[in-house]
Design a protein around this nucleic acid. Structure first.
Lengths: 151, 151
DNA sequence: TCGGCGGTGGGAAAAAGTGGGAACGAATGG
DNA sequence: CCATTCGTTCCCACTTTTTCCCACCGCCGA
């Protein structure tokens, strides 16, 4: 599974060199085929190996079409999903439209999140992280899954 | 179990010599494989033997993705989790990004906390400890788990 | 005092990141 | 239908980072 935060620079052509430690796993999992789409809440991109994405797309499709929240999710996630493959030197090309959505400039953060990656503009990632740290998580606000969590 | 506070100096490359008394236990527990990540509240790092970390990651990943509190936890903990191995002379290399996060300069404190270690910048550790001592914990505010605790 | 162990530092080899150029293919316009 | 141009992809080479290994130093116990 994917974890850890990596600072990466996009080159002039918008290419992103996937860190070596992930490459092997991506190739064996999906033969280098990835799907990028937008996050529903934050200005960042989500990158899934193709098999994982297909499961998610299944679930999204089964949501009731008449429900506005579901509809919105489908439009955002399926609507922006783009195939991106690892090239022969382990790089991916982030499409301009998605790059623009997430405000990706020269330096970005590739963040492992289990079965997927998140891709953030570096400055936005740092700002957001500071926000998350500031929030005081008083125990009584926590959903039941969290309140009994021991780390 | 890991106990005790150790003052350690990082060398110029960010390497940290694990105190000898922990080495054997780390090697037999996880073959020298550790995971470092950030603490969700304090500016310090958490260091787990790989098996312990994997349990935690499991729990975190099962949390609902659409819940903002859960998402924040996942991003902080899984998002920063980095593999670090004991090298041939019992040292670990703390990645620059994590070093920066915790403000680790030359001298740091490695603090045993049961199944994991905490890694603090020495100055920050001392300040924080003073804070903890100052806080007056009036008994009637204590959650039930604590009010019956005998130390 | 000598030997060993733990801590420290540095250097060299290997690997990974980075950038640019060339070739190929598709699209557009004459 | 052909030619030119733009975009994409593949490949090579350079630079930087990482990793591994070895040697030194200082302390402690014998």
């Amino acid at each position: 599974m994917f974890r850890g935060a990596n600072k990466i620079t996009l080159d002039a052509k918008g290419r992103l060199a996937m860190p070596t430690r992930y490459r092997e796993r991506i190739v064996e999992r999906s033969n280098g085929r990835l799907i990028a789409t937008v996050d529903r809440a934050d200005r960042c991109l989500l990158i899934y190996p193709l098999p994982e994405w297909e499961e998610i797309e299944q679930k999204l499709r089964r949501l009731p079409t008449l429900n506005p929240v579901a509809r919105r999710l489908q439009r955002l996630m399926i609507g922006h999903a783009t195939d991106i493959d690892l090239d022969s030197s382990g790089r991916i090309l982030v499409p301009p439209s998605l790059r623009e959505y997430a405000g990706l400039a020269k330096t970005v953060m590739l963040v492992g999140q289990g079965s997927r990656f998140e891709l953030w503009d570096e400055a936005l990632w740092n700002e957001s992280r500071e926000q998350w740290l500031k929030v005081d998580e008083s125990t009584d606000e926590l959903p039941p899954e969290l309140s009994s969590l021991y780390l």
